[in-house]
C-alpha cells in the first residue's frame, strides 16, 4: 500500500501557482526524501497532505484516505514536525508535549522520558524562553514519542546542532526499523542522502526527478583530482568531463558517473602520481538542476 499517494496535485494562491501537477508515491516502510530550494513548494505539499490547505486540483491520499475530508482519522496515525515550530509562550515544554500526546490519544510515558533525555530538553521551561532549536526539540519529542505509522517531517533538524542531528537521525532509523514510513523534506542534502531510500526533487512547484538514490546517481558527477608525471592533454575531447581546473600540475575535473571508466582510461596514459575522488553528492545534482533551468535566486 502507498502511505502517500499524490496525483496531479495543484495548489494556487490567487494568481500564484505554488504546486503544479505534483505526483508522489511513498510506499509503506520507506524513508522518502523531498528536496528542493526555498519556496519550491515543499511546505505547501506537506500542508495539503495534512489537510490544512485544500488542493486546487488533483488528489492527495494519506494512508489510503483523502487528506482533506478524512483529516482527523489520518492524523490519529501520523506525526508531524513543522520547519518552524511556534508554541504557546505561557506553557512549558513538558505541558505542550503532553497536550500533543493526549490529543493524539497515545501516551507513552517511558518513551517520552527517554526522548527528553536523548534530546537533552528541559521540559519545565516555558516555551516563550526556548530558543528555536529547543522549540524544534519539543516538536520532535512529541512526534517520536507517539506511536504513528507515518512521520511527516518538514526540515526538522534545521535548528539542531550536529550532536542532536545525530540523535534525530537515529530516531528516524529506529522508526524505519519498526516498519514505519517517513516523509522528510529538506534542503540539507547530506541528511537526505544519509537517511532516505527514495527521493523526489521539487522545483518551482514541479517534481523534476524521482527515484532511488542509485537511480539518481546517473545524474550525479564525481569530482576527481589528479596529478600526473606527464602533462594531461586532450581532456576537453573526452565526453563526460566538465569544469576542468588546473593549478600547477594538479588538475581537478567533474566526471559524469557513467563516463568514469573512459575518463580513467584516458587519464592513466599520463602516469598518475596522485588521485583523489569525492563521492557523488546530491548537492551537485541539486545544483545542476537548479542552474540548468536558470532558476530565480
Amino acid at each position: 500500500m502507498n502511505v502517500i499517494q499524490v496525483e496531479k496535485l495543484s495548489k494556487t494562491f490567487g494568481h500564484v501557482t505554488a504546486l503544479d501537477g505534483v505526483d508522489l508515491k511513498v510506499q509503506a516502510g520507506e524513508v522518502y526524501g523531498y528536496i528542493g530550494p526555498n519556496g519550491a513548494g515543499k511546505t505547501t505539499t506537506i500542508r495539503v497532505l495534512l489537510g490544512i490547505l485544500k488542493a486546487s486540483a488533483g488528489s492527495a491520499k494519506v494512508l489510503g484516505q483523502d487528506a482533506w475530508t478524512d483529516a482527523v482519522d489520518i492524523h490519529r496515525r501520523i506525526a508531524y514536525v513543522p520547519g518552524e515550530v511556534n508554541l504557546w509562550p505561557d506553557l512549558t515544554g513538558g505541558e505542550v508535549i503532553d497536550l500533543f500526546l493526549k490529543l493524539r490519544g497515545s501516551d507513552n510515558r517511558n518513551r517520552r522520558e527517554e526522548l527528553l533525555q536523548r534530546f537533552d530538553l528541559d521540559p519545565r521551561k516555558k516555551c516563550g524562553t526556548y530558543s528555536k532549536g529547543n522549540r524544534q526539540k519539543v516538536a520532535l519529542v512529541a512526534a517520536f514519542a507517539s506511536d504513528a505509522d507515518l512521520y511527516i517531517l518538514d526540515e526538522p533538524s534545521s535548528g539542531l546542532d550536529p550532536l542532536l542531528e545525530k540523535v534525530f537521525q537515529d530516531c528516524v532509523r529506529e522508526v524505519k526499523e519498526e516498519g514505519k514510513s517517513v516523509f522528510l523534506s529538506s534542503h540539507i542534502l547530506s541528511e537526505v542522502e544519509r537517511l532516505c531510500d527514495k527521493v523526489s526533487i521539487i522545483r518551482q512547484g514541479k517534481i523534476i526527478e524521482t527515484g532511488t538514490l542509485s537511480e539518481l546517481r546517473h545524474l550525479t558527477r564525481i569530482s576527481v583530482g589528479v596529478q600526473t608525471r606527464v602533462p594531461i592533454v586532450g581532456l576537453h575531447d573526452v565526453s563526460g568531463v566538465h569544469d576542468i581546473q588546473k593549478e600547477g600540475d594538479w588538475v581537478s575535473i567533474q566526471v559524469d558517473t557513467e563516463r568514469l571508466p573512459d575518463v580513467m582510461k584516458h587519464l592513466s596514459q599520463f602516469e598518475i602520481l596522485r588521485l583523489e575522488s569525492g563521492p557523488p553528492t546530491l548537492e551537485d545534482l541539486f545544483l545542476r538542476h537548479y542552474r540548468s533551468t536558470g532558476g530565480a535566486s
Binding site: V72, Y80, E84, N86, W88
Partner: peptide, 18 residues
C-alpha cells in the same frame, strides 16, 4: 492570534477537527 503564530498548524496536524 494562534493561527498567525503557527500554533494552529501544530494542532491541526493532530487528530483535531477543522
Amino acid at each position: 492570534g494562534d493561527e498567525e503564530y503557527g500554533r494552529i498548524e501544530m494542532l491541526r496536524s493532530l487528530p483535531v477537527g477543522r
